[in-house]
Simulated scan of single mutants.
Amino acid sequence: MPAVEQCASFATGRVARPSGGCCNELNRLPGMTRTTADRRPACNCLKQIAPQYPGVKDSLLLALPQKFGVTLSFSITRNTDCNRVT
């Protein structure tokens, strides 16, 4: 998932600001997750990928949408219960 790769440096705290590529990919996410049937797999995908990046911080994951003014209908964290995403 390109969005994850673009945002990994910020989510692990290696850089202070997310990249423009991260912003572009994150802005695509709301359009790709318009229904519950779309949101749950996207949530699970993000949860499964996060452990591949040691040092990912949930606080930084939560900050990503705010950094770019993106509204998501679910939180991006390693602990999100994707079955409860509606």
Results as ranks from 00 to 15, higher is better:
Asn24Ile: 13
Ala16Phe: 05
Phe74Glu: 04
Leu61Cys: 02
Ser59Lys: 04
Pro2Gln: 14
Gly21Ile: 11
Ala42Ser: 10
Lys47Tyr: 01
Phe10Arg: 01
Ala50Phe: 07
Ser19Lys: 12
Asn24Leu: 14
Ser75Gln: 10
Pro54Tyr: 08
Ser73Gln: 13
Ala37His: 10
Arg40Asp: 05
Thr33Leu: 07
Ala37Ile: 09
Phe74Cys: 03
Gly21Asn: 14
Gln6Met: 14
Val70Asp: 08
Arg39Ser: 02
Ala37Ser: 14
Thr80Tyr: 02
Val4Cys: 10
Gly20Arg: 15
Arg17Pro: 06
Arg17Lys: 14
Asp38Thr: 09
Pro18Asp: 09
Cys7Lys: 07
Ile76His: 01
Thr77Tyr: 00
Thr77Cys: 00
Tyr53Asp: 01
Gly69Ile: 15
Phe74Met: 03
Arg34Asp: 09
Val56Lys: 02
Thr71Gln: 15
Leu29Ser: 05
Leu29Tyr: 00
Gln66Tyr: 12
Val56Trp: 00
Thr12Met: 11
Pro41Gly: 06
Ala50Arg: 05
Tyr53Phe: 14
Asp81Cys: 02
Val56Glu: 01
Leu61Asp: 00
Met32Glu: 13
Cys82Met: 02
Thr12Trp: 06
Asn83Val: 00
Pro2Leu: 10
Pro18Ser: 11
Pro51Gln: 08
Gln48Ile: 00
Cys22Gly: 10
Thr35Val: 08
Pro41Leu: 06
Ser73Gly: 12
Thr80Asn: 07
Arg84Trp: 02
Phe68Arg: 07
Lys67Pro: 01
Thr12Asn: 10
Gly20Ser: 15
Leu26Phe: 08
Ser59Gln: 07
Val70Met: 11
Leu60Thr: 01
Met32Phe: 14
Met1Ile: 10
Leu26Gln: 06
Asn79Ala: 09
Phe10Ile: 04
Ala11Phe: 04
Gly21Leu: 12
Pro30Met: 07
Thr33Lys: 06
Lys67Gln: 15
Leu64Gln: 03
Thr86His: 11
Ala8Ile: 10
Thr35Gly: 05
Ala8Arg: 08
Gly20Thr: 15
Thr77Lys: 02
Arg78His: 01
Val56His: 00
Thr80Trp: 06
Phe10Glu: 01
Asn79Thr: 09
Pro2Ser: 14
Asn79Val: 06
Thr77Phe: 04
Met32Asp: 13
Asp58Trp: 01
Thr36Asp: 08
Gly55Glu: 09
Thr36Met: 05
Pro65Val: 04
Arg78Leu: 02
Arg14Cys: 12
Ala37Leu: 11
Ala50His: 03
Leu46Lys: 01
Asn27Ala: 13
Ala63Cys: 11
Ser19Pro: 12
Pro65Asn: 09
Ser75Gly: 07
Asn79Glu: 06
Val4Tyr: 04
Thr86Ala: 08
Ala8Lys: 12
Ala3Gln: 09
Tyr53Met: 04
Cys23Val: 13
Thr80Cys: 03
Lys47Val: 02
Thr35Pro: 01
Leu26Met: 13
Ser75Tyr: 04
Phe68Asn: 04
Arg14Val: 12
Arg40Gln: 11
Met1Pro: 07
Met32Gln: 14
Ile49Ala: 05
Tyr53Arg: 01
Phe10Cys: 02
Phe68Tyr: 13
Ala8Thr: 11
Leu60Val: 00
Gln66His: 13
